[in-house]
Amino acid sequence: MAGADPGARITTLLDRLGREAGEQARETADELVRTVVEFYGEGLARTVRLLRAAPAGADPLAVLTADELVGDLLILHDLHPEDTMTRVGRALDKVRPYLGSHAGDVDVVGLDAEAAEGPTLRLRLRGSCDGCPSSTQTVRWTIEEAVARLAPEIAGIEVEGVAEDGPEPQPLLQILPHPPDDAPGAPPPADRERGPDEPPHWHTLPAPALPARDNATRVADVEGNALLLVRLPGNLYAYRDRCPACGAGLRTAALDGEFLSCAACAARFDVRHAGRGEHAHLEPLPLLEEDGAVRVALPELLGARP
Score class of each variant (00 low, 15 high):
Glu290Met: 02
Arg122Asp: 12
Gly185Ala: 10
Asp191Asn: 07
Leu227Ser: 05
Arg276Gly: 13
Val70Cys: 02
Arg90Asp: 13
Ala29Ile: 07
Gln137Asn: 13
Leu13Arg: 07
Ile143Asn: 01
Leu74His: 09
Asp221Arg: 10
Leu99Arg: 05
Leu51Met: 00
Gly89Ala: 12
Val294Arg: 03
Thr11Ile: 09
Ala280Leu: 01
Arg218Asp: 05
Leu121Thr: 10
Val37Asn: 13
Leu288Cys: 03
Gly7Arg: 10
Leu260Lys: 12
Thr252Asn: 09
Gly43Tyr: 11
Ala238Asp: 09
Asp191Val: 08
Thr35Gln: 15
Glu158Phe: 00
Leu236Lys: 04
Val63Lys: 03
Thr11Pro: 00
Asp256Ile: 07
Asp256Lys: 11
Leu210Ile: 03
Leu73Pro: 09
Leu73Phe: 14
Asp83Tyr: 06
Pro177Val: 08
Ala212Gln: 08
Cys265Pro: 09
Ala216Trp: 08
Leu205Met: 11
Leu74Thr: 11
Arg9Gly: 01
Gly257Cys: 09
Glu145Cys: 07
Arg87Ser: 12
Leu79Arg: 12
Arg140Asn: 02
Cys246Ala: 06
Asp197Phe: 14
Ala91Ser: 11
Ala155Trp: 02
Pro81Cys: 08
Ala253Leu: 02
Leu298Glu: 04
Leu285Cys: 01
His203Thr: 14
Pro119Phe: 07
Pro171Val: 08
Leu205Gly: 02
Cys243Arg: 09
Glu193His: 14
Arg268Ala: 15
Glu144Tyr: 00
Pro196Lys: 00
Val139Cys: 14
Arg194His: 15
Pro55Tyr: 00
Leu14Gly: 00
Arg240Pro: 10
Tyr239Met: 06
Arg126Leu: 15
Asp165His: 01
Asp191Tyr: 07
Thr35Glu: 15
Gly7Met: 05
Glu158Leu: 09
Asp107His: 06
Arg16Met: 02
Pro180Val: 05
Ala253Gly: 03
Pro179His: 05
Leu210Gln: 03
